[in-house]
């Protein structure tokens, strides 16, 4: 069972790398925000998988919960911050 968890974690990391493409090369600021949010929502699952691999899931579940909360608040704050800045949304050539 531990082998399966390790392969799942590797696959999730690969998906996170793909999402990182959108966060780095996204044409507008909000595209980067979506990419970051996607990476964060995969990280919550990855933390639980790491906890199961090391056998300390009772500790890692708290870290995952706190990470989910932080991800949510970060997205809210960033979208509120970029709301007023009209020039940042213009498409790059």
């Amino acid at each position: 069972m531990g082998q399966i968890f390790i392969y799942c974690g590797l696959f999730l990391s690969f998906l996170m790398l793909l999402s990182l493409y959108r966060a780095v090369f996204g044409p507008t600021v909000l595209d980067r925000l979506i990419g970051t949010n996607a990476v964060g929502s995969k990280t919550v699952v990855l933390l639980i998988l790491i906890g199961l691999i090391y056998g300390r899931v009772d500790m890692f579940v708290d870290i995952a919960l706190a990470y989910g909360l932080l991800n949510f608040i970060a997205v809210l704050a960033a979208s509120k911050y970029f709301q007023k800045r009209r020039g940042l949304h213009d498409e790059m050539p």
Binding site: L30, L33, I34, N37, S41, V44, V61, A64, L65, G68, L69, F72, V75, L76, S79, K80, F82, Q83, R85, R86, L88, H89
Partner: peptide, 24 residues
């Protein structure tokens, strides 16, 4: 955690859409 994600994810999506609409 799942219940929290189900409540938080639509709110985050709505915040991003709102920022996009306001920026035109």
């Amino acid at each position: 955690i799942v219940v929290f994600v189900f409540m938080a994810s639509p709110t985050a999506i709505h915040a991003i859409v709102d920022a996009g609409v306001r920026a035109g």
